[in-house]
Nucleic acid binder design. Sequence first.
RNA 1: GGAGAGAUGGCCGAGUAGGUCGAAGGCGCUCGCCUGCUAAGCGAGUAUACUGGGAAACCGGUAUCGAGGGUUCGAAUCCCUCUCUCUCCGCCA
Length: 423
Amino acid sequence: MLDMKYIRENLDETERRLRTRGGESYLDGFRELDEKRRTLLKEGEALKALRNSVSDEIGRTKDKSQVQDKIIEMREVSHKIKGMDEELNQVDEQLHSFLLTVPNLPHAATPVGTSENDNVLVRSWGEPSTLPFAAKPHWDLGEELGILDFERGAKIAGARFTLYRGAGARLERALINLMLDLHTDKHGYQEVLPPFMVNRDSMTGTGQLPKFEEDLFKMVDPDFFLIPTAEVPVTNIHRGEILKKSDLPISYCAYTPCFRREAGSYGKDTRGLIRQHQFNKVELVKFVHPTESDAALEELTGHAEKVLQLLEIPYRVMALCSGDIGFSAAKTYDIEVWLPGQSCYREISSCSTFDDFQARRASIRFREDEKSKPEFVHTLNGSGLAVGRTLVAILENYQQADGSVRVPAVLQSYMGGLELIKR
RNA sequence: GGAGAGAUGGCCGAGUAGGUCGAAGGCGCUCGCCUGCUAAGCGAGUAUACUGGGAAACCGGUAUCGAGGGUUCGAAUCCCUCUCUCUCCGCCA
């Protein structure tokens, strides 16, 4: 959520920056609502001040017969206040729900552009391999090796669900452990294991609601949602809290499954593990001092990259342009991994800084020092990494001419010493 | 699923025959004093949001005692609904 006062005082500038996201107009009607609200507030509060002081006087007067006329007068005033409060509540509600649908301001360093074609290559690591034989996509490799069973996944649940078997299931688990161990032991994150379902407040706090409800799996009763990413439960750990400055930065990593409707992506990535309704992810989340968030984004992205470096899989880092960043993000780096089976780079991690956008929605604050007013922290998060897609990258990059797949050296100890996955 | 208890400021905790309660007291914390150091002691201060005024320091108003609604001139206190926590019973991985 953006700061109402900031919008009020910088309306044109805010609108201009928001439009670099590609929409038409974002702040239509704000001025009117805001002014209406403040007028109602002012008049209502004046009446309340009157009622408070007169009621106080009535309370002090022992002989109530002397103040009968005031009681009657205040009865009228209270009636009027009630009406104004109702109107004010409506305006407040409108203004609030309006603000919840306004996306974050793009960071000054976010390249301006309209689509993914305008994303900027920041760096690349490793050589995109050209295998000396016809590289297979992971869905062929996985089925032939008997480690990915798409048909039965579909039978059990439906399209976009997969049954992992044997070395495939083990490989997924090995990757989760490798990532968690790396981030906790080497990068200083505290491991957390959060609930996989959250309430509406949490979904609103990180920005999934109210705009993107159709992307979520929803429980009917009670009103819970399956998390689409660990970002939601982990960022909401500190919702409504005032943190100590000395607590910052706070760094959490979490393994969770993620659940996404993938509404609107019918026909896209229908084969294989790339786009599933349920997938595993290790997520990195940081709460930092506002002056530290830019540096923290670089650092966090580096932590995610480290996983691919250890696995020795080529990748590149893209700075997303203003037209391609997410609703809540101010700046985002996507890490894209090379997939020889499909001869393309695919997103495997998305690392973003949200500045104070999520912190304001979720009210996550800190004090600069004991006496100063609470300020909003900055939040960041990134995948470190999407586990299913990492498994895809291993299958495709480590495949052999005979259809077997070598196990990356760093994973062998997690795989009981297994060096080769073969039929 | 059944029965009961509870939800007050950073924490603990008073306050329920409605008014002087944004809320006693204690702890913690901050600043000052005192003390050879520490401890103890003394004094002052110490919630948040919105809003008006002001360059600012700051001053004023309103709201908030789990959430929402009701009664009343006036509600932390009375009534209703909901949420959450705890205890016991049942069931269960």
